[in-house]
C-alpha cells in the first residue's frame, strides 16, 4: 500500500517561497514523475514527502493517514539520492543490509533479503566490494538495493540517473521501469529530463516555479497541454510558438505547432522561410528554418529528405494539431 496525498502544501525557506500551494493525489502503485526546469522545487517537493523538510503549511497523507509531523524514519518510505549516498566504509552487503540492521531484523532474514535484492539487481558478484570499487551504474543499483530491502510503501528517486553517461542512463531507465512492473510499489521520480518523464511515467507532474502546471498521463500532456509552459516543456524537439499576425489568424495570442506536425515543401505552403542548421539523426532530420519576422522554427522530417542550409522552403502546419493559447498562456480549446 502506498498512496500519497498532498493537500495545499506550502514551503518557504526563510522568506523565500519555493512551493506556493501544491495539491496532488498519487495512487497506490503508480509511477509518478515530477518534471520541470532546474530550481523549480522538484527536490523540495520530494523531500517534503520524504519528511526531510518540514512543511510550512498543508497536510501530507500516506494511505490517508496524516504524516505531516512524522520524521523520515517513521513514514516507511525509501529514497534514492542523486549522489547515491552510499556509506563508503561499508561493503555492498553492509550497505544493503543497513536499513534492516537499523530495524533490528534477525540475521537469517537479513541475509535472505540482501541476497534476493542482489539477485534482482545483478549485484551478487559485488557484495563484498566497497562502493568506491564499483562503477556508477553499480553504485546506483546498490542505492536501489538499499531501498528495496525495506519493502517501503513508496520509493522516492531524486534525479537518480543524472550522474550516469547517456548509454547507461537508457539502460537504467529500463531497469527501473522493469523494477516497478515487478514490485508494483508506488514510485515518485524526480527529473529535469522530459524524455525520462515521458518514457517512464504512468503520470507526470509538470512543475514550474513551485506550481503544479499540469498532472496527467504522458500522452495527455502531449496531446492536450494545459498551457504554454507544459506545451513547450513536453515533447522533443520543443514546440514552435508563433505570435502576432500568424496567431491572430487562428484567433489566439500565441499558437504552437510541434516540429513533427509541420509539413515542409519546396513549392508551396502557408509560411515561407530559409533553411538554417540541418541536424541529421539518421531516422529523423531536424531542420531549423528561419521565418521572416518570426524567428527560428524547428521542423522534423524523415531522414531521407535532403535539404541543405540556404534552401528556401514552405512550411504548412497540420490544421488539426495547432495549439492555441490566450494572452496569459492558457490553452484555448
Amino acid at each position: 500500500m502506498g498512496s500519497i496525498t498532498l493537500e495545499h502544501v506550502n514551503k518557504s525557506f526563510g522568506g523565500h517561497q519555493v512551493i506556493p500551494d501544491a495539491s496532488l493525489e498519487i495512487e497506490d502503485g503508480a509511477f509518478v514523475v515530477f518534471v520541470g526546469p532546474s530550481g523549480c522545487g522538484k527536490s523540495t517537493l520530494l523531500r517534503l514527502i520524504a519528511g526531510l523538510e518540514d512543511t510550512t503549511s498543508g497536510i501530507i497523507r500516506l494511505d490517508g493517514e496524516d504524516v505531516t509531523q512524522r520524521g523520515p524514519a517513521h513514514r516507511g518510505l525509501a529514497m534514492v539520492f542523486q549522489s547515491y549516498a552510499l556509506y563508503p566504509h561499508m561493503t555492498v552487503r553492509q550497505n544493503i543490509a543497513f536499513p534492516l540492521k537499523m530495524a533490528n531484523t534477525d540475521k537469517a532474514t537479513t541475509e535472505r533479503k540482501v541476497d534476493d535484492a542482489a539477485r534482482v539487481l545483478n549485484l551478487t558478484d559485488y557484495l563484498d566490494r566497497k562502493p568506491r570499487q564499483l562503477s556508477g551504474g553499480q553504485r546506483q543499483r546498490v542505492a536501489i538495493g538499499r531501498a528495496i530491502v525495506r519493502q517501503p510503501k513508496a520509493f522516492l528517486f531524486d534525479e537518480p540517473l543524472s550522474n550516469l553517461d547517456a548509454a547507461l542512463r537508457v539502460n537504467m531507465r529500463i531497469e527501473i521501469t522493469e523494477l516497478h512492473q515487478h514490485l508494483k510499489t508506488t514510485m515518485v521520480y524526480v527529473t529535469h529530463d522530459q524524455v525520462e518523464a515521458m518514457t517512464m511515467a504512468d503520470k507526470i507532474v509538470v512543475l514550474n516555479a513551485g506550481r503544479i502546471e499540469q498532472y496527467g498521463t504522458p500522452m495527455e500532456l502531449y496531446r492536450t497541454p494545459a498551457n504554454k509552459f507544459v506545451a513547450g516543456f513536453i515533447g522533443s524537439p520543443r514546440m514552435n510558438f508563433l505570435e502576432g499576425a500568424h496567431a491572430e489568424k487562428y484567433r489566439a495570442a500565441t499558437i504552437g505547432v510541434r516540429p513533427e506536425h509541420l509539413r515542409i515543401s519546396r513549392e508551396s505552403g502557408d509560411w515561407h522561410g530559409r533553411v538554417g542548421v540541418v541536424e541529421h539523426l539518421g531516422s529523423d532530420t531536424f531542420l531549423h528554418v528561419h521565418m521572416e519576422g518570426v524567428g527560428l522554427q524547428t521542423v522534423r522530417t524523415e531522414g531521407e529528405k535532403e535539404f541543405v542550409p540556404g534552401d528556401t522552403v514552405w512550411l504548412s502546419p497540420d490544421p488539426s494539431r495547432i495549439y492555441r493559447f490566450d494572452q496569459s498562456g492558457l490553452a484555448l480549446r
Partner: peptide, 14 residues
C-alpha cells in the same frame, strides 16, 4: 555529505 546523513535517517537510524 548531508545526503549520507539523510540516507541514514531514512534508513531508520536514530
Amino acid at each position: 555529505s548531508e545526503e549520507q546523513k539523510e540516507a541514514a535517517e531514512m534508513d531508520g537510524a536514530n
